Computed example of a mutant assay.
Amino acid sequence: MRARVEIDLGALRANVRALRARTDGAAYMAVVKADAYGHGMVRCAEAALQAGATWVGVATPYEALELRAAGITPERARVMCWLWTPGGPWREGIEADLDMSVSDLWALAEVTEAARATGRRARIQLKADTGLGRNGCQPADWADLVDKARAAEREGLVTVTGLWSHFACADEPGHPSIAAQLARFDEMSARAYAGGLRPEVRHMANSPAVLTLPEARFDLVRPGIAMYGLSPAPELGTPADHGLRPVMTLAAPLALVKHVPGGHGVSYGHHYVTAGPTTLGLVPLGYGDGVPRHASGAGPVLVDGKWRTVAGRIAMDQFVVDLGGETPPEGTEAVLFGPGDRGEPGAEDWARAAGTIGYEIVTRIGGRVPRVHVDAEPHGNAGPGADAAGPRD
């Protein structure tokens, strides 16, 4: 392969079990939005279910419908999606038994209209904006949304299965917004109960909240990035501090190794010029594959047991590393990031080099880099604790 992303599903299952051990009995929603943060949505959802998850969460209804089409049936898992736009596929969502988030009266109107058309109750969850200022219903509008949702329940059009919200600063321990959001969520939940709603679950806990805020775990937790073995923030410690292992490895074989003289410019703009005679290695990955151009001149790569640094600008399809006169053969593996077993960099090292976060590093790896899933049981054969080696795909 020109390059590959290797996804260790055994590590993912182990991460799910480690996170479940922190949930105080709360149900576990495996968040697999954005193609499972770049790891492969369906395979990662399957692995999480094998490790004991009972819910799967995605952003868009189209992701949720893809999961259903792939065989994650209502009997196997609840599937929730939360990012809707006017005219969305509400009817298809009802027919697929999705749990669908509602943040405003327009969404409630559309889902109830779809329920009338299908003759089936829609499962909805009301999202409260407790302070993030993104999606969700503002406190001032909450009572109206609750009362109209309850009226729709009485009419047999919907069942409100959940109340939920999302933290703004759970990755900053001690931030005053955390306690304020929890208090507001309790207040808004109380108003929903007073209005006659009896949801199955309340939930707020994303990855950092699962790791550090036991008071936020409620009935259901929604780990995202932690499930893939990355820490939500450096302030919360390394993945190993939480018993987690990075799931993704990005690597490519050197496409060319060549000698160049001193004073030789490298890549566009000649932002790197060789200090003396040396060897250059060509890595066939670039920003067209999701390698961040902002990491030009800084991104770390393990080649032949040694850390090297991107020399000059990262181009669309390739970049160069200065091998310091060494001449590993073409085909030698260049590892951009992985779990660190061989001393390779991690996704967080690339995040620092690019001035971003680990989430973006793994999520941005593009579709022309094939995902190779390893240590994967055949679908449906493994129990919650299984970790047996299996086929690659």
Rank of each mutant, 00 (worst) to 15 (best):
H270V: 10
S231C: 12
V310N: 01
G281D: 05
W307G: 12
L197E: 07
G286C: 01
L256Y: 13
L197W: 06
L254I: 06
T238K: 09
G286V: 07
V201D: 00
T309M: 06
P239Y: 10
A192Q: 01
I225K: 08
G312V: 03
D304M: 00
L213I: 10
V221C: 14
G263Y: 07
A295H: 05
L280T: 09
V273Q: 08
P284V: 02
R217Y: 09
L254A: 06
R198F: 08
I225D: 04
T212D: 11
E235D: 13
Y193F: 14
S296C: 00
V260A: 07
D289T: 09
P246S: 07
V303Y: 05
L285F: 09
G312N: 07
A192F: 07
D304I: 08
R202L: 11
A216M: 09
A205L: 01
F218L: 15
P300W: 10
V210F: 08
M248W: 06
A275C: 01
Y287H: 15
L282H: 14
G224D: 14
V291P: 04
R313C: 00
M248N: 00
Y268R: 12
A255H: 03
V221G: 13
V210R: 09
V283C: 00
I225L: 15
A192R: 04
D289L: 05
G286T: 08
P232K: 10
A205K: 02
A251P: 00
G224R: 08
A192T: 04
E200H: 14
G224M: 04
A194M: 01
E200M: 13
T238Q: 05
Y272H: 03
A298H: 15
H203C: 11
A255Y: 01
I314S: 06
G195W: 05
A315P: 02
Y287E: 13
A209R: 11
T278R: 06
M204S: 04
G196A: 12
E200G: 05
L282M: 11
V201L: 13
P208W: 13
V247P: 08
T279C: 07
T212W: 06
M248K: 05
I314K: 09
V301R: 11
G269R: 08
W307F: 12
F218E: 00
S296H: 07
D241Y: 03
A240H: 03
Y193M: 08
V201Y: 10
R198V: 14
P232N: 09
P223Y: 11
A216D: 08
T309F: 02
A275T: 08
A209N: 05
R202F: 05
G196R: 07
